[in-house]
Amino acid sequence: MGILRDVAIVAGHELGEALRSRRVLILALLYLGGAVAGTFILIEVLAGLEAMLAQTLAVAASERPGTFTQELMSSAEAQRFLAEVLDDAELAAELVTIPPLALFYGWMVINFCPALVMLTSSEAVATDLATGAARFSLVRTPRLSFSVGKLVGQAALMAVSVMAGAVGVWVTGYFQFEGFAPGPTALWMLALCGRGFVYCLAYVGIAIGLSHLTRSVPWSRALGLITLGITGMLWGIAHLDRVQEAAGPAVRALVPLLPRAHQTDLWRPDLLDRLPALVMLCALCVIYFALGYRFRARRDA
């Protein structure tokens, strides 16, 4: 009970610190700005494609893009095309039911948030170790509750940022996208926020784990980015045909240790099909956090 209380206090302080130092504001603006800019670019590209198609078919183009895209998305041809690309008919059937901008938002969260998480969270513990401020807390609470509090605080910070991104996409779509369905899009975005949050949680675990490895803030940031690069490379290598053929079962068993190994399953329509991926991503968060924590716990504060 005492430990849980301490975790909540440290996490609350971590979030409060981020608010006070305007880190939350900067992060939220970064996510919001990125989402708005990304949505604008997407809408511009769609507008260009729709105009080109309207010209080819000699029909009048709509003032705002979206109508044709949504028609296309719900067509049997699009579903067939997606099924071939994904090699998964069930998943393709699910994807075409998602409003286009919600789908875009989900794609953005999964592909861009990990980088931002690694950039911002990998210094969370290292900063306090570098300045010695950790000592003021560690004389009052065990190391575990301090570190878990940091993890929870950073996860909450990430949740706020992911939500800010959703707001950005929704508002941009509302004003710029023809046939935008506010209700269904918002509901889908909320659902994808949750899935994106769990996906990024694995990266928060990696970042906080790494943050325990060094007392140097620049080094902890560098470690975060290097690790992000390495996991990306490993994922790419693991998908080379030659590697897949040559890899033994042991190597193949290691692939699930990469968060990216679970991203496709997050889109599955049935909760029971998504559950293993969600559980595994939470487990990866705990595993990577525990590895970093164990390294620091055996050392002096």
Partner: peptide, 17 residues
């Protein structure tokens, strides 16, 4: 710290707030 919270106060050297 769990057993003796608040019973010991420490001013460490060279720690930044």
């Amino acid at each position: 710290p769990l057993k003796a919270a608040g019973r010991l106060g420490l001013l460490p050297q060279d720690c930044e707030l």
